[in-house]
Design a protein around this nucleic acid. Structure first.
Length: 424
RNA sequence: GGAGAGAUGCCGGAGUGGUCGAACGGACUGGUCUUGAAAACCAGCGUACCGCAAGGUACCGGGGGUUCGAAUCCCCCUCUCUCCGCCA
């Protein structure tokens, strides 16, 4: 959520930013509602002040008739206050829903453009492999080596679920281990979080768990839902906290499972385990001061790159265009790994993403910090990035490491945990 | 799941309907004193919102209610502790 004061002080810039991002918002309406809100609060405060004052006189009033008058006046004021509050409540609801539509401001260097065609490739690392045979895609490779069972997944839980088998199981654990080691070495405190959270927490973070358009699985007869990303549980962890500036940046990493209904996402690219309803992820999350977030953003991307460099998988870093940014992101880098079995002759496929949300998320969550010198608190900045999303990483590994003889070589860094150097 | 107790400011802890945003103690910050430190003494010490400001309003786990007036009374919820049951 963007600061109300900021929106009203920078109407033109905010409106331009909304256009760049392809979002329709009535900024003028927000300005008008805010003005009315101020009026209502002022009159409400005054009414409460009068009410308090006249109530305080009652115990000292000895004349019973005057006392009754004061009580009657109190009753009147009470009604006026209730009317004022009702109007304010309605107005604030309207204001909030309008305000929630306004996306975050955008980093000045982010490419401006309507869709993912406008995304800018920042750099490409690693050589795209050439095969002197027809490379298989990850579904064919998995079939050949008995690495995933999609049929059993469908039978038991439905389309979009899968069983990992044999080396795939070991590789999942290996990828998690590698990711945890790297993020711990980079100073992130490791966590394992609940995979369910109260609906109130989801809502607080901006997900709507039970609506018709929801991407969230919710558990019947409870107020719990399965988390779509550890952002939910981590956001819940920091919600309403007032942190010490000296302790920033706070960097946490978390292993969690992600559950997504992916409603309406059936298409060509959904075969196999590229888009699934459940996957395991190691996620980085940081709470920083305003002047630290850009640097931490670069740090998170560097860790993501280091991970894929360690796996020796070619990738490119994308600076996401304005029209393709989610609401909270100020700037977002995606890592796209080369997937030789994807499309016609290979394509890059998204494997991680790293967002700097500046104060947009933190404002809604009331994640603040204070400095000893200054009075009051400031809104912190939050960032998140994927260390590893297991299923996507598996696809990239299998497809890049396939050999002419049909075997799949295990990346060297994973061998200690997998216990072998080759599948098949 | 059952029975009981509880939730107050950074911490401890008073406060059971009316000058309570909240006694008192500790911690912390500044000052006096001291060669320096300690002790002692004095002062300060929450968050948010509205307002140019003066100032005002709200907040005693969360939400609702009673009342002219609620930290205090009533209802619902959440959490913590003790005991019982169940259990990887």
């Amino acid at each position: 959520m963007l600061d109300l004061q900021y929106i009203c002080d920078h109407v033109d810039e905010v409106a331009r930013n909304c256009r760049n991002r392809g979002v329709q918002v009535d900024i003028e309406k927000i300005v008008t509602l805010r003005q009315r809100r101020g009026e209502l609060i002022t009159t409400g405060d005054k009414l409460r002040h009068d009410h308090k004052e006249s109530s305080a006189k009652i115990p000292q009033e000895s004349d019973p008739r005057k006392k009754q008058e004061l009580i009657a006046r109190g009753k009147d004021l009470k009604q006026e206050i209730a009317a004022n509050e009702a109007e304010l409540r309605d107005l604030e609801a309207e204001l909030r829903s309008e305000q929630a539509l306004v996306p975050n401001m955008t980093h000045p260097d982010a490419p401006v453009g309507g869709d993912d065609d406008a995304n800018r490739v920042v750099r490409q690392v690693g050589d795209i492999p050439t095969f002197d045979f027809q490379p298989l895609n990850h579904v064919e490779l998995a079939e050949k080596h008995d690495l995933i069972d999609l049929e059993a997944g469908s039978r038991v839980a439905g389309h979009g679920f899968y069983y990992l088998k044999n080396e795939a199981v070991l590789m999942e654990m290996a990828l998690i281990q590698l990711a945890l080691q790297k993020v711990a070495a980079a100073g992130f405190t490791l966590h394992a979080t609940p995979d369910l959270a109260r609906d109130s927490v989801l809502e607080g973070i901006g997900f709507s768990p039970r609506g018709p358009e929801t991407q969230i699985y919710s558990v019947e007869q409870t107020d719990l839902s399965l988390v779509a990303t550890a952002e939910i549980t981590l956001g819940g962890m920091f919600k309403d906290q007032i942190l010490e500036a000296a302790n920033l940046p706070i960097k946490v990493a978390v292993i969690s499972h992600c559950f997504r209904t992916e409603a309406g996402a059936h298409g060509a690219a959904t075969r196999g385990i590229y888009r699934v309803h459940q996957f395991t992820k190691v996620e980085m999350f940081a709470v920083t001061g305003p002047d630290q977030s850009d640097a931490v953003h670069e740090e998170i991307v560097a860790i993501e790159e280091d991970f894929f460099q360690a796996l020796k998988i070619p990738y490119q870093v994308i600076d996401t265009a304005t029209g393709d940014l989610g609401g909270p992101a100020y700037r977002k880098y995606d890592l796209e790994a080369w997937m030789p079995g994807r499309g016609e002759g290979g394509e890059f496929g998204e494997v991680t993403s790293a967002s700097n949300c500046t104060d947009y998320q933190a404002r809604r969550l009331a994640i603040r910090f204070k400095t000893p010198e200054a009075k009051g608190t400031q809104i912190a900045h939050t960032l998140n990035g994927t260390a590893v999303a297991v299923t996507r990483a598996l696809i990239a590994i299998w497809e890049n490491y396939q050999q002419a003889d049909g075997t799949i070589v295990i990346p060297e860094v994973l061998r200690p945990w997998v216990g072998k150097d080759r599948i098949g």
